[in-house]
């Protein structure tokens, strides 16, 4: 977790599937509750695989952040992660890296 100017960056690595999502959620949510940031940045540069469980994780954190009056962005997704984000209609959350059509 990297905290800066009201935002928190969660650096996620490895495979983001159903098995891993709950553990990641349990690491992020207490920090959000404690620090109440205005922005949660999910740095996905180290994520080598993601399925719809990752989408559930992102949408869940988006709900938490909206309750705090903030938002969520996704940073540096790989092409395969980007494709899953596209299927979910979440390409708008990507803040850096190559852009593709939604």
């Amino acid at each position: 977790m990297i905290k800066r100017n009201g935002s928190i960056t969660a650096v996620i690595s490895g495979e983001l599937d159903h098995c891993e999502a709950a553990g990641i959620r349990m690491q992020i949510d207490p920090e959000l509750e404690h620090l109440m940031p205005t922005m949660l940045i999910l740095d996905m540069s180290g994520v080598t695989f993601m399925d719809s469980s990752g989408i559930g994780l992102i949408l869940g954190r988006q709900r938490v952040m909206e309750s705090l009056g903030g938002g969520v962005t996704v940073k540096n997704p790989s092409p395969s992660v980007r494709r899953i984000l596209q299927v979910a209609g979440l390409s708008r959350l990507i803040i850096s890296g190559k852009k593709t059509e939604e």
Partner: peptide, 14 residues
């Protein structure tokens, strides 16, 4: 409640 996105089949189809 388990944060399932409901997109499993959509991902399969894509």
């Amino acid at each position: 409640e388990l944060e399932r996105s409901g997109l499993g089949f959509a991902v399969m189809e894509s």
